[in-house]
Structure formats: C-alpha cells, structure tokens
C-alpha cells in the first residue's frame, strides 16, 4: 500500500487566552483544533467542511506548517514533517502549495503577475531568470490568462483573474498536494464555476491531491471525492462525498446539508438551525458490535468507523 499524499494524525492547536487581569494574568486554553486526523489519498480531492470558526482553516494552515501545531503529526508521502526545521522543511515545501480565499491580499500589489508566478522558482533557486519568466508566462496561459498579463499588476485584474494567478503560482512548482482554502467563496457564481472547472482540469492533468476547504456544500459535492466534516475543532464525520449527502449519520452534518438552498420548491426541506445542545443530544449511539473497526464503549463521543470508508462521531455502547 502506498502512503497517502497528505495525512494528518491527531493534529491539535491550542491558543492561550488571557482570562485574568493585566497585572497578574492567568491563561486559559482555547482549543481551536482538537485531534484532527484525516487522509488525502494521492490523486484525490478531499473536502473539509464546517461553519466558520470550526477550525477548518486552522487545520489547513497547520497542514502547510504555516501555523505550528500544538501536537500531532503531518505526513507527506508518509514522512513526518511536523518537527522539521526551516531548512529541512524547504524541499517538502515544493510538494505542497496553498491557494487562499482572498485573492486580493494573496498577491503582492507591488509585483507584476509574471514576477508573482515566477516567485516560487526564484525562492527555490530553480532555472535562470529568463527561464523563470518564460515558465511563469506559460503558466499564465495555462490558467487561461494571456501572456500579455505578465506585465500587469494585481489591482488591474478581476477577482477571478487574480485567483487564476494564485493557482498558477501554487502549481508552478508541480506540487503533489494543494491546500485550497475557500478559493471560490469570494467570487461571483459564474466565475466560481470557472475556477472550479480549472481546478478540476489541473487536478486531472497533474494528478494532484487537493485538500479543499469550503463551507459551500454544492461546490464540495461537485468537486470532491471524500468529505470531512468539522465542528468545534473536531472531525465529526467523514465519508465518500455521495455518502455524506445521502446517508449522513451525524446531526451536525445534517444541519449543514439542510442549509443548502434547493432549486425546486418541491425539494424544499425543513430548515433546522440546531444549537450546540441539540447537536449534542442528537449524536448517534452505536453498538460496538455494529462497527467495522473495534472501539471501546464509553460515555463520551468518539470517532468510530461505521463502514470501512465512513467514520462518524458517536457514543459507543456495549
């Protein structure tokens, strides 16, 4: 069995928050991400969904080592990179790249598009300056922008065009893993579809593995192979995309699904806005005998394997 392109094992992030006075501060911990484990197999797109504040962006940034995890492991092609120093990490940086939500602040306003797209080559000291520019212009074409855009500055572009540039910059090093942090949520609907199509095409061409972070479930449904649902810093459900949409087990996942607007009034579901309490009471109770993998019975919810590719947070009974 080959190692997955990206694997997170028990990743946690705790932020200290001051609760006491200024003179004698006391600190409490805010747990932003709590023991998240997930796998992005090679050549697959995994969706990471959840409401804002659920810790999905923090998880994505930790996977990139842009935020240091408090504990847990990050594996790229089976190698743990969570403890590597700056220099040792650098070769792995070539294998994983990121696209951000806000395309405006993602591009340095003082640099031309050609410089922006060529920057990864520059940082990694690949090719001559001329070849770097040539490669950058080629990538601009590949993401659907004319070569003449190379001389332009980010403020001259539309949001969709800027996001194309950001994608070109992320992919010019030919990474194997791409973390896409809500790349479409700041875009108009029509532009959104174009960017999704572009990502899909490039993924197929390059055999990319993508961790696609989004709260837009309709996009997730059309793009991803597997969906991981996060709630309050924890993974509450993980299943193949269609299984999530058709047979989700966790109450939080269902409330997310209920929030999707539907096209026809006939299909209109009852919209439920569920509080944390109702979600807590709705957590499924499963018997240990029904599970695909062994689990210890306990009164607190734990992530259990229902079928080989469907995991859900549940209370396990004997």
């Amino acid at each position: 069995m080959t190692a997955p392109a990206l694997e997170l094992r028990g990743l946690s992030k705790k932020f200290p928050i001051r609760v006491g006075g200024r003179l004698l501060p006391r600190y409490a911990e805010h747990v932003a991400v709590d023991g998240v484990s997930l796998v992005v197999p090679t050549n697959r797109i995994v969706g990471l969904v959840g409401e804002s504040g659920s810790g999905k962006t923090t998880t994505g940034l930790m996977a990139m080592r842009l935020i240091e995890p408090t504990s847990g492991q990050i594996l790229i092609d089976g190698k743990d990179i969570s403890r590597l120093g700056h220099a040792e990490l650098k070769p792995f940086r070539r294998q994983m790249q990121v696209v951000f939500q806000d395309s405006y602040s993602a591009l340095d306003p003082m640099m031309t598009l050609a410089q922006i797209v060529a920057e990864p080559l520059h940082i990694h000291g690949l090719m001559t300056a001329r070849a770097q520019t040539e490669a950058a212009l080629g990538w601009l074409e590949r993401v659907g922008l004319d070569r003449s855009y190379g001389q332009r500055y980010p403020h001259e572009l539309s949001g969709g065009q800027r996001q194309r540039v950001a994608i070109a910059r992320a992919l010019i090093l030919r990474p194997s893993v791409l973390v896409a942090d809500e790349p479409t949520s700041a875009l108009d609907v029509s532009v959104k579809a174009q960017i999704i199509n572009l990502l899909q095409d490039l993924q197929e061409e390059m055999g990319l593995s993508i961790l696609f972070i989004s709260h837009d479930l309709s996009v997730v449904r059309s793009l991803t192979d597997t969906v991981v649902v996060m709630h309050r810093g924890r993974v509450v459900e993980q299943a193949p995309t269609e299984a999530i949409f058709l047979e989700s087990r966790h109450p939080y996942t269902r409330s997310l699904l209920d929030a999707i607007p539907v096209l026809h009034p006939r299909d209109r579901r009852r919209r439920t806005f569920q509080s944390a309490e109702t979600i807590a009471t709705g957590i499924p109770r499963l018997s240990a005998r029904d599970l695909a993998a062994p689990a210890m019975p306990s009164a607190t919810p734990q992530l259990v394997t229902v079928t080989p590719d469907h995991r859900v947070e549940a209370i396990v009974t004997a």
Partner: peptide, 14 residues
C-alpha cells in the same frame, strides 16, 4: 498577515 506573505512562507521563503 496578508496572504501573499503566507504564500511566500508556504513556499519556504526565509
């Protein structure tokens, strides 16, 4: 805090 700085960090820039 801008994302182009994050992007450069993600590229392994010092």
């Amino acid at each position: 805090e801008k994302e182009f700085v994050r992007a450069a960090q993600a590229l392994g820039a010092t």
